[in-house]
Computed example of a mutant assay.
Amino acid sequence: MLKTEDIQIRDPFIVPVESAGTYYMYGSTDKNIWGKGTGFDVYVSRDLEMWEGPFPVFRPPGDFFADNNFWAPEVYSYQGRYYMFATFRRRDNQLLGTAVLAADSMMGPFHPHSDGPVTPSDWSSLDGSLHIDEEGQPWMVFCHEWQQITDGQVCAVRLSDDLKQAQGDPVLLFSASEAPWTTPLASDKVLVGDNYVTDGPYLFKGEDGRLFMLWASFIHRSYALGIAVSASGKVTGPWMNEPEPLYSNDGGHGMLFRTFEGKLMLTIHTPNKTPLERPIFIEVEESNGKLRVTGS
């Protein structure tokens, strides 16, 4: 068994299964996630404090389209199977893209489902997240990477019902610099141009039906997590960014889930530095159409 503070992981994603009293934690689990990708693991817990694992859930086949940068797996139950949305760096053009994997069990093994990335082949894209709209149509919300376009974007694209391919062109939801709280990416000593980062979008429907988005960027050299709200309640927005980040203490790429006791919980990784990153869990309150951190 491992304590939460002993697990090196980035981009933690929790799937609670109440019938089994079990939490499954996926994430970027390679020791050096900036290099060669070996696959993804899962950890299993009953209390979010002690964990069993890691258990391998994906290892790439020999003809897989990528061998570097295996990032940010998110797992969803959909039409009787489990689908993993994860980011990989393509072999053919060295661009990032989000692909879909599938399995019959949350413990895997997951196998390629889409024919490579479902993001545009000439875009550097990452952190795809599944959203099912009010009509039952699957969408993927993802980032168009700042390293390709300077001002990172959050976009959405319709998916086919089988989740194997995109349908139509992506829709721009907003750019990173539009949020009041973001600042340009900077190193410890110098400003790196006017580059604005978008990372890890995750959609969450509030108790009153309001559609929230968590997404990460930087504020004064610190990794941070912001909130946007859809004015229409639809994935296509328009999206309004809150003036202040939800969390700004060098942590981000978050998602929300409810514990078996009904608490709304945020998980992020912090600090944003390999190999020190760890998952943490913070209680969040939803009140009057706002989300705020109440835990430490």
Rank of each mutant, 00 (worst) to 15 (best):
T4A: 14
T4S: 13
T4I: 02
T4G: 01
E5F: 12
I9F: 07
D11V: 05
P12M: 11
P12D: 08
P16A: 06
P16N: 09
T22D: 05
Y24P: 00
S28R: 02
T29M: 11
D30Y: 06
N32W: 12
I33K: 09
W34F: 15
W34I: 12
G35M: 06
K36R: 15
G37V: 06
G39V: 12
V42L: 03
V42G: 01
W51P: 00
W51H: 00
E52D: 15
E52S: 12
G53I: 01
P54A: 07
F55A: 08
P60M: 07
P61S: 10
D63Y: 14
F65R: 00
F65C: 00
A66R: 05
N69F: 11
F70S: 00
W71T: 03
A72E: 08
G80L: 15
Y83V: 01
T87W: 02
F88W: 12
R89L: 12
R89A: 04
R90V: 07
R91D: 09
Q94M: 13
L96S: 12
T98I: 05
D104V: 06
M106G: 00
M107N: 05
M107R: 15
H111E: 15
P112H: 10
S114V: 01
D115P: 01
V118S: 03
P120W: 14
D122L: 14
S124K: 00
S125Y: 03
D127H: 09
L130E: 13
L130S: 08
H131E: 10
D133R: 08
D133G: 10
E134Q: 14
E134L: 14
V141F: 10
V141N: 02
E145H: 09
E145Y: 13
W146K: 13
I149A: 01
V157N: 07
R158G: 06
D162N: 14
K164H: 07
Q165N: 08
Q167D: 12
D169M: 15
P170Q: 13
L172T: 08
S175C: 07
A176E: 05
S177H: 08
A179M: 11
A186E: 14
A186H: 14
A186D: 14
S187G: 15
K189F: 11
G193I: 12
Y196C: 07
V197Q: 07
D199Y: 14
G200Y: 01
F204G: 00
G206K: 02
G209I: 09
G209C: 09
L211I: 02
F212Y: 15
A216G: 14
F218S: 04
H220W: 10
S222H: 11
S222R: 12
G226H: 04
I227A: 05
A228V: 01
V229F: 06
A231V: 05
G233N: 11
G233C: 08
K234A: 04
T236M: 10
T236I: 10
G237F: 05
W239K: 00
M240L: 15
E242Q: 13
E244S: 07
E244V: 05
S248Q: 13
D250K: 03
D250N: 14
H253K: 04
G254R: 03
M255D: 01
F257R: 07
T259G: 13
G262R: 09
L264V: 06
L264S: 04
H269L: 10
T270P: 00
T270L: 06
E277K: 09
R278Q: 09
R278Y: 08
P279V: 10
P279S: 09
I282Q: 04
E286V: 02
K290Q: 14
K290E: 15
L291H: 06
V293D: 03
